[in-house]
Amino acid sequence: MHHPHENTARHRVVTLGPAGTNAQAEAARLFGDVVLEPSFESAMRTAYDEGAHALVAAGFVQRDEQQVTDLWVDLHFRHLGRMMVDATWESPTKRMCVATGPRALRLADVRSVALHPATEVFARRYVPRAARQYVDAKPLAVQRAADGTADACVGSLDVVGRHPALTVRAVFEPTMVWILYRPARDHQPMFQGHLPTSQTPANHAKALLASGA
């Protein structure tokens, strides 16, 4: 994406809250007006109603203690004909970590971990035996560890740093693929002429086929 700030600063984007999510950080990096919603579903609905853009993580997954309740692919199909993809890209997330509360002196002591379902792989890596407490956004996981509801959390390092009772045990910085949607009634892509052709989904697929990859 070439100089996105020049094209997006005056535009509104709706994405996942509360404050402190990676979605908020990525939206704020590119847009001048960021609105936070409690779910990607409500972000898509608000964006459609207000004629704004919606920023969604391709790795979006939502679940309760028993089962997966929503996925990006379901979200995408639910909004066919209403919202369409404007751009996609990969970028580093904020630095993330596994942190423990005062009850867990070591990762081996962790009996429960609060996490967003999309970060399950990190829970498996660092606290595989801990019982899971799933939440809809990483700041909520951090809060559970801070108030003692869970022994540990998978969260963003900056958010964990606001809670003196938490101890950082492992730090990592993954990447995420982001999808920018716009209302289907708006036929002018925001990044037209500014997004490299290799970054557009159709041209990227054509390039892969041509290369034999």
Rank of each mutant, 00 (worst) to 15 (best):
T119E: 10
E120N: 08
R111W: 04
T149D: 05
D136L: 09
D136K: 03
P128M: 03
L80M: 11
V85E: 03
V110A: 03
E90Q: 12
S91F: 05
A114D: 09
H116D: 14
V135K: 00
A150L: 07
W89H: 08
H79P: 02
V135W: 00
V121A: 15
L107M: 14
V135P: 01
V110P: 09
M83P: 12
D136E: 11
V110R: 03
H79A: 06
A104D: 03
R82D: 12
A137S: 12
Y126P: 07
D147C: 13
R95N: 07
L105T: 14
D86K: 06
R144S: 11
R82A: 14
Q143F: 06
R103T: 15
Q133P: 00
P128L: 04
R132P: 01
Y126K: 04
A114S: 15
R129A: 13
P102E: 15
R124Q: 14
L105R: 14
D151A: 08
D136M: 08
V113K: 04
A131W: 01
A87P: 11
Y126A: 06
P102R: 08
Q143L: 13
R132A: 11
A99K: 02
P139N: 01
S112H: 11
R129S: 11
S112N: 06
T119M: 15
R95D: 13
V142R: 04
Y134F: 13
K138N: 13
R124G: 08
E90F: 08
H79W: 14
R144E: 08
A131P: 01
V113F: 02
F122N: 05
F77N: 08
L107K: 09
R144D: 10
H116S: 13
A104L: 05
A108K: 07
E120A: 13
F122Y: 15
R78V: 00
R82P: 02
R78Q: 10
A114N: 04
V110I: 13
V121I: 11
V142P: 04
T119Q: 09
Q143D: 12
H116A: 14
A131E: 13
R82Y: 10
R106I: 01
A99V: 00
R129N: 12
R129E: 14
E120V: 10
M84I: 14
T88K: 03
V135N: 01
L80H: 10
D86F: 07
P128G: 04
M83L: 15
A104I: 06
A104T: 03
A145T: 02
A114Q: 08
M83H: 08
R144V: 01
R82W: 10
A152I: 03
